[in-house]
Amino acid sequence: MDLLENQAYINSLKGIQGLEFLRGKTVLISGATGMLGSCLADAVMVWNRQQAEPCRMVAVGRNLEKTRERFEPFWNNKNFIFIQQDVCKPFENFSAQVDFIIHAASPADPVNMAKYPADTLLANVLGTKNLLEYGLAQGMERFLFVSSGEAYGQPDENQDDFVEGYCGPLDLTSPRSCYPEGKRAAEVLCQSYRSQFGADVVIVRPCHLFGPTMSRSDSRAVAEFLWAAAEGRDIVLKSDGLKERSHCYVADAVQGLLAALEKGESGQAYNIADRRYQMTIRAFAEQAAEAGGCRVVFDLPSDMESRGYSRVSRQVLDAGKLEGLGWKPGYSIENGVAEAIRILRECSQ
């Protein structure tokens, strides 16, 4: 079953509110086949079905075949446009006006970050530069950069939860810092374009997201846990699993992104995290195992895997600032993980 034929997934998209400000607008999403970008694109296109004045969706990606397969139900829709483009290169083959640009293109899983640290950093820095310049040339209303909770670095000994004004240390000798440092540099670039060129920018910092839009090849821990549970395999935990993390269901994260895009203050950053999914890596694995009817087992990571692991001891985000815009996540502890596993299982049959 195709994901876009799954009724539970469609229902989750229909539950996303607050898209009215997109009526008649053009939205460009880089990283459109990624976990967050694809869910956002799906939500907009499903919402469009009921609109007399729909939103025009421009999906940017490097792989034509992958993007076409992912968005086949929308491919011939006049309000869905695909641009085959590496964001690290200037946008020269598309000159249409855009109202909103959402930059979500970046390797984000440990294996790809370990294999391609330079590509990871440049997708954030050069990609942000190229998209900002394109948007300014085309009269965009607002630019939203999808950063990461990893941008905070290590908490200090007095740090509780990460709030948007905190900036902790990162190990600049480690290639693994390509991701958090790339996000930091891109955030500063957004602020620089706002100051120097008048760009209207807003930033979101998602925590560890999960949901049915996770790629089968995604090497992030939560993705591996849910795919294993969906396929009836043991969940392999390659650490003691005691690091504490914030998590959020992907449809709720899309809702938060939209709230920041519409209502966020220019130049501000907003954490996206669901307090109900604040737990250790091990606790998340155990919850997935219970929902999937499998076991949690322990193993040692490969060298490539360990090179891509974050060394942050505690990564808990305070989403109070985003909640102040009216955002409220909707999936409970019980049904978020279980629903993701159920959808993945149904779509893989």
Rank of each mutant, 00 (worst) to 15 (best):
D109A: 02
D109I: 01
P110E: 01
V111H: 00
N112H: 06
N112D: 12
M113W: 00
M113N: 11
A114D: 05
A114F: 01
A114K: 03
K115H: 05
K115P: 00
P117G: 03
P117Y: 00
P117V: 08
T120D: 02
L122M: 14
N124S: 14
N124M: 11
N124K: 13
V125G: 04
V125F: 05
V125K: 06
V125N: 07
L126Q: 10
G127T: 07
T128N: 08
T128F: 03
K129W: 02
L131E: 03
E133L: 11
E133W: 01
G135C: 07
G135A: 06
A137W: 09
Q138M: 14
Q138W: 09
Q138C: 09
G139H: 05
G139I: 10
M140T: 13
M140V: 15
E141C: 08
L144S: 09
V146I: 14
V146M: 11
S148D: 05
G149W: 06
G149H: 04
E150I: 12
Y152V: 08
Q154E: 13
Q154R: 00
Q154T: 01
P155K: 09
D156C: 09
D160L: 11
D160N: 14
D160A: 12
D161C: 13
D161Y: 14
F162G: 07
F162E: 08
F162H: 09
E164H: 11
Y166D: 11
C167G: 12
C167N: 15
G168M: 04
G168Y: 09
L170G: 09
D171S: 13
L172E: 12
T173E: 13
T173N: 13
T173F: 10
R176Q: 14
S177H: 08
C178T: 12
C178W: 04
C178H: 02
Y179I: 10
P180T: 07
G182P: 07
K183P: 06
A185R: 15
A185S: 15
A186Y: 02
E187L: 14
E187A: 11
L189W: 06
Y193K: 04
R194F: 07
R194S: 14
S195R: 14
F197R: 15
F197I: 04
A199D: 10
A199S: 12
D200I: 13
V201M: 07
V202F: 08
V202I: 13
I203F: 09
I203L: 15
V204G: 07
V204C: 14
R205K: 14
R205A: 11
P206K: 12
H208F: 15
L209E: 07
L209V: 13
L209I: 13
L209F: 08
L209R: 08
F210D: 07
F210S: 06
G211I: 12
G211W: 10
G211T: 10
T213V: 11
M214Q: 15
S215C: 00
R216Y: 12
S217N: 10
D218Q: 03
D218C: 03
D218S: 05
S219Y: 00
S219C: 00
R220A: 04
A221Y: 08
V222C: 13
A223G: 04
E224N: 13
F225L: 04
F225R: 05
L226F: 05
A228L: 02
A229V: 01
A230M: 02
A230I: 03
E231S: 12
I235F: 01
I235W: 00
V236A: 02
V236L: 07
S239Y: 04
S239F: 06
D240N: 10
L242S: 11
K243W: 00
K243V: 01
K243T: 01
E244C: 10
R245E: 02
